[in-house]
Amino acid sequence: MARSLEERQSITWEACREAVLLGPVSHISAVDMWKVERPSQTNFVSDKLHVTVSDPRLSRLSSPDAYVHCWSGLDSRHIRYTTDGIGVLNAETTWALMAKGTQVDGLTELGESMIRHGRTTESKLRDFVEHETFQCKAKCYDALTLMDSRSDSPKETQTRLCLYSYGLWGFTSNYSVPGISFDNGAAITLDLADPELLIGIEYDGDHHRTDRTQWRRDAWKRRQLESMGWTVVSVTQLDLSDEPHRAAFAMNIAAIRARKLGRPIALSTPLPWRKVACRMRRMRRI
């Protein structure tokens, strides 16, 4: 993933050097320039650069090099410059303007990626939403509600949001299990955990299978956790690939919770993200 981010940044940077830009680099192009993961679902295509201008007359000009967007609130506060003078929207502005063509889950994923890579903070994103005027503010507020700055990868974010969409709450991201560690003293963590019921969820990318050392480390870790009463569930891309697989994954987690609690667990049909965010806000007020 790190190599892919480097490559995307390099390709976009080179395109910027060769193009005539009417404004600062923005949207999916700015995501690449900031070297963070793109949201898995977005309507913004990347066959050309994206730039943003404040003058609507400029946005109506045809450019062979870029898609030209218009945001009347744009000023110098929102722009950062590379060492060779290329203007790029700052991380907060990039995130907020991506909301127009990105669903709440993708916006949540992007925000967490920017935080994880140190490009911004949750408080800076919230401050931008509260004080700037732009489209899709409500979507940004919903994404902020769903964000967890402890998430360690986009796939972990997608896994957590899958559970949220089915009404399964109470999972902690990147949870350090107390009372146990690796031989070198490193903490044993779980991508997602319900510490009360001792349920752990681990997203296994291909390297967990193809890297022999990683595979052995994972197997040892799960044996130790299971000896302490944890139930550890492995998740792969297949589990997140479409709605039937996502539903099966959610039903599996609900069944484990029901077994540990000794009572049935209600599972909703996939909820719209607005409802998921509203429920989370209500739970936080209780």
Rank of each mutant, 00 (worst) to 15 (best):
A2E: 04
S4L: 00
E6Y: 01
R8T: 11
Q9M: 04
S10A: 14
S10W: 02
S10F: 00
W13R: 15
E14M: 06
C16I: 02
A19V: 07
L22M: 10
P24Y: 02
S26A: 14
I28K: 02
I28F: 07
S29D: 04
A30S: 12
D32E: 09
D32M: 08
K35Y: 01
V36D: 00
E37N: 07
P39E: 06
P39Q: 03
N43A: 10
F44R: 10
S46N: 09
K48L: 07
D55A: 14
R60Y: 00
S62Q: 04
S62D: 05
L74Y: 01
D75Q: 08
D75F: 04
S76Q: 15
Y81I: 05
Y81G: 00
G85E: 14
G87Y: 10
V88K: 14
W95R: 01
L97N: 02
A99D: 01
Q103N: 12
V104Y: 00
D105L: 01
T108Y: 01
T108I: 03
S113V: 09
S113W: 04
S113F: 04
R116P: 08
H117C: 07
H117D: 04
H117N: 06
T121N: 03
T121D: 03
E122L: 13
R126A: 14
E130I: 11
F134G: 07
A138L: 09
Y141C: 03
A143C: 10
L144H: 14
T145Q: 06
S149N: 12
R150Y: 06
R150M: 11
S151A: 15
T157E: 05
Q158K: 02
T159P: 12
L163H: 09
Y164W: 15
Y166Q: 11
G170E: 11
N174Y: 14
S176K: 14
V177S: 08
P178F: 06
I180T: 15
I180N: 09
S181L: 06
D183R: 10
A187G: 01
I188D: 03
T189K: 15
T189D: 09
L192Q: 07
P195Q: 03
E196N: 07
L197P: 08
I199P: 12
G200M: 00
E202F: 05
G205I: 02
H207D: 14
H207Y: 12
H208D: 13
R209S: 11
T213P: 00
R216T: 11
D218F: 07
A219E: 10
A219T: 14
W220P: 06
R223I: 10
Q224K: 13
S227M: 07
M228W: 04
W230N: 10
W230G: 12
W230E: 02
T231Y: 07
V233H: 03
Q237W: 10
L238Q: 12
D239M: 00
D239F: 02
L240D: 12
S241N: 11
E243I: 14
H245R: 13
A247L: 04
A248S: 10
A250P: 13
A258M: 05
R263H: 14
P264D: 06
A266Y: 13
T269K: 05
T269A: 12
P270S: 09
P270Q: 04
P270Y: 01
P270V: 08
P272M: 00
P272Q: 00
P272L: 05
W273P: 14
R274H: 05
K275T: 15
C278L: 10
M280R: 13
M280L: 14
R281A: 07
M283F: 03
R285L: 11
R285T: 15
I286T: 11
